[in-house]
Amino acid sequence: MYPDKTKMESLAEATNLAEVKGRSLWSDARTRFARNKAAVGGLVVLIAILLFALLGSFFQAWTYEAIDWKLMGRVAQIGGPSVENGHYFGADELGRDLYARVVQGTGISIMVGVVGSLVAVIVGTLYGATAGFFGGRIDNIMMRTVDVLMSIPFMFVLILMLVIWGRSITMLFVGIGLISWLDMARIVRGQTLTIKNKEFVEAAIAVGVSPFTIILRHIVPNLLGIVVVYATLLIPGLIMAESFISFLGLGVQEPMTSLGALIQAGSKQMLYGAWWQIAFPLFFFLATLFAFTFVGDGLRDALDPKDR
């Protein structure tokens, strides 16, 4: 589910074009985005899910770690969703409140996706912009390095790192982000090569602005469109990667949880009657992935008028 490279390149051309023609790219995009029903729908769902993750805990009757001893051992029989005992989504296999856990897990999953995606985008943009700006030998070495890294199974390296240095949420964020900055670096480099020859950059070089400042002040802002789209489309893939890591038991540490961990636990119970343990986490998982994908696709279509 990673963003489709070719489309990103086409988008890159389009944003470039827009800039050249001096149109207001962003205002046009807003209009086009508003016309896209799927994208607007996705945005609404996304906002609802974010509100749920942020504010859901104010409505919970139980904390995400407290065990309801009355239910323990009989969750499949009496632990279903119920308003009377405060377990709106039922209880998990130990008798903990599933509503509170889904709120918590949704927050963590979205965080992993967003932070991981930010890491990927920041590293990829800076790396690609640097390579493109300096060009020549530096560019050659940097891009050959990317070629080499592309053949390394990074999921595997991440698993090894989690095994070796122990699981931590920071490691998860950074590691998941580092899996996917390579494509970003390539696209950004290509863009930078074009932007580099624009008058404003040449002018900046002429007055002796430092290369790093040029990259940050003049090149990166011009990549904003593509960065936003890439970041949005990366998030669902990263949320799925996190769910795989949770499956391996290397995800966030109990009693904290993530949607992946909840689904994994629920999948062990679903054949034995406790349907709510899989249904609620899976619903939020799917809704989140759909929402991010539709919003991302919508943003891309909006910013790349060629697709219309």
Binding site: I263, Q264, L282
Partner: peptide, 20 residues
Amino acid sequence: YLSVGFAIGSQSIPNYVMAP
């Protein structure tokens, strides 16, 4: 919409849910 929805949906359901 149905095709896209079906595609994303079937990819998003983790294999450890699908297999059982």
